[in-house]
Design a protein around this nucleic acid. Structure first.
Length: 337
DNA sequence: TTCCGACAGTGGGGTCGCAAT
DNA sequence: ATTGCGACCCCACTATCGGAA
């Protein structure tokens, strides 16, 4: 059975739209996009029905047993199609953390889902309704779909309608930044739901961190990049154990393979080859699968890298190359955030 | 003409599950 | 028992092309 709708997506941008009344602002939740097809429960005893879909159209119903009560929370409609994000909240910080959701997404057996669900429950943050009683609402403006959504879905222990505010995007972005959330999504309040499309009527503004890092090695490229390189291996200096020595051990911080333009690839390869050395400069060395393929270089090149956050394993998430910092002393590059 | 949206193709971290070792 | 690998999730970014503005 196919998914009832392919989710609409937002274009990425680094600037908020003008803060006028034509835009609504929502938190960008760091989780898994899920479309819910719900047949409402009735007082007469019909318990309703629920089917969940991933953004790529695969059936995810069995992965999130805590949403089984959703049909009982839909009122004034016999059936609805909802759009939202499933998130896993870190119990200590209260923030959504994608890593906590992963075991659930990856599980393929009922037993694995059960074990993952026992350790970590999920929340479904609903932000749109695209169909009611088999009548598509795609052509209705965002504003109308939202008010419809708020009428028909009652919050439950594991689901709720995500907040949306008219205007004041700057305020929301500040709050999101302070709380360590992923970003903000701006939506034109008069825009239709264009299924499957990445429309500029929806814009995501993600919080990106900047970090200077030292290059200690690189990996060969594939496909169109076999003749240059795939990624550079980056790291930072830990503070020295004692005293004021400038450079402690070089800690591995991940691979950076995107953000390079064609001409960067060629000039960078030259710089890497010039710094070639036989042994690994990282202490400890990167994980085996990386180290096995790596070519090592003297750690003297400093890159500026954008990323979303540091993972639990101390490496960069969603890293991208911004440029070279020839003005920086590589022995002073530490981890900033 | 310029710009936008869709695709393809490269790259990232992480987890699960199965096959090979 | 360990390791390697692909399949999925999330994604960033560059380059290209055709059609809309």
């Amino acid at each position: 059975m196919p998914a009832p709708v392919v989710p609409m997506k937002a274009v990425a941008t680094d600037q908020l739209p003008p803060d006028d009344d034509r835009w609504a602002f929502e938190v960008k939740w760091d989780g898994m996009r899920v479309v819910a097809e719900v047949r409402a429960a009735t007082p007469g005893g019909d318990e309703g029905a629920l089917r969940l879909w991933s953004a790529s159209g695969s059936d995810a119903t069995d992965r999130f047993p805590e949403l089984a009560g959703l049909p009982g929370a839909v009122h004034e409609a016999g059936s609805v199609v909802l759009d939202g994000e499933v998130v896993a909240l870190d119990p200590t910080s209260g923030r959504p953390e994608f890593g906590l959701l992963q075991p659930r997404i990856q599980a393929t057996t009922p037993g694995a889902v059960q074990r993952a669900a026992a350790r970590q429950s999920v929340q479904y943050i609903v932000f749109d309704v695209v169909s009611v009683d088999d009548q598509p609402l795609l052509d209705h403006p965002y504003r109308d779909r939202r008010s419809r959504l708020e009428e028909l879905l009652e919050a439950g222990p594991n689901w709720r309608v995500g907040p949306s505010q008219r205007g004041d995007g700057e305020l929301l972005l500040d709050a999101v930044r302070r709380q360590g959330l992923e970003g903000v999504v701006a939506k034109r309040i008069d825009s239709p739901y264009v299924a499957g499309s990445r429309s500029s009527a929806w814009r995501k503004i993600k919080v990106r961190l900047h970090q200077e890092l030292v290059v200690g090695g690189w990996l060969p490229g594939e496909g169109g990049r076999v003749s240059t390189f795939g990624a550079v291996l980056v790291g930072y200096r830990d503070p020295p154990a004692h005293g004021a020595e400038p450079a402690g051990p070089l800690r591995y911080a991940g691979r950076v393979g995107t953000g390079f333009r064609q001409r960067d690839l060629i000039t960078t390869l030259t710089e890497l080859e010039r710094r070639q050395r036989p042994n690994c400069p990282f202490d400890p060395p990167p994980p085996a699968p990386v180290a096995r393929l790596a070519r090592w270089v003297d750690p003297t090149l400093v890159a500026e890298v954008a990323h979303a956050e540091w993972t639990r394993d101390g490496v960069l998430r969603h890293p991208s190359f911004l440029g070279w910092r020839t003005d920086k002393d590589p022995s002073t590059i530490g981890r900033t955030p």
